[in-house]
Amino acid sequence: MLLNSVIIVLREVLEAALIFSILLALSKQSRIHRTWIIWSLLIGLFGAVIYGINIPLVSEWFDGVGQEVVNALMQYAVYIMLLLYIIILLLYASEPAPETRKLLVIMMVLITSIAMICEGAEILLYFFSVTRSAHHYAAVMMGMIIGASIGISIGFLFYYLLMNICEKWSMIFGLGLLILVSSGMISQATLLMIQADWLPAQMPLWNTSDFLSEKSVLGQLLYALVGYEATPTALQASMYLGGLILPVFIIVLLKLKFKG
């Protein structure tokens, strides 16, 4: 039970922690004060509780695949907002006006809190299901503490890593990671849509689980960071690539426009 609760919590916390640390590092560069975290934590936790309570209802939607569809839509929404965030950041990176700064803060709060809603709801569901039987209580609690601590620690280390590389590189590095994380979300959302049969199912393209299992901590880290998938389908892989190329394309276009 311990290992399982570690993995469940770690998977969810890690993704949120990575997004938080990247956005925090980037917001420090656009000189945005970090008080926005409090807002996203509040909205995220509140939303997670509301969503967690309503999952029984939501899962009945769309012939019993409501949860997949809602989660996938949330992840697509996060991707689009991350895309907008990147564009705004690049357009006004040099001297963000107060209005732009406000817009960036709203974007960041939305992105992080929606990510938290998806992931927090699952942790809550798990916690309340498993702790109903008393003899798993200690193991689950310990597992959750360990998983959350590992996730948050990685987030902190990541933040300081981003903060301590030089400013020019940390911008590029941070944006690159953000694009990877958001493409990973596209891939996950696509998987959920396939699972719900809203998108066509296919044979997996390859299987790398012998090489690197999604169950391992490294697998989980790569899953959260670059959307690692051991057995992706063609549709998933192409959505991932599309999600990767689109922002890069936009960035190159913006850079060219600025130069020309």
């Binding site: 899962s59 949860q67 998987l191 699972q195 997996p204 689980s209 999604e214 169950k215 998938e229 057995t231």
Partner: peptide, 9 residues
Amino acid sequence: YELNREKVI
């Protein structure tokens, strides 16, 4: 992990 599926019931 092998089927690549995950769903809360």
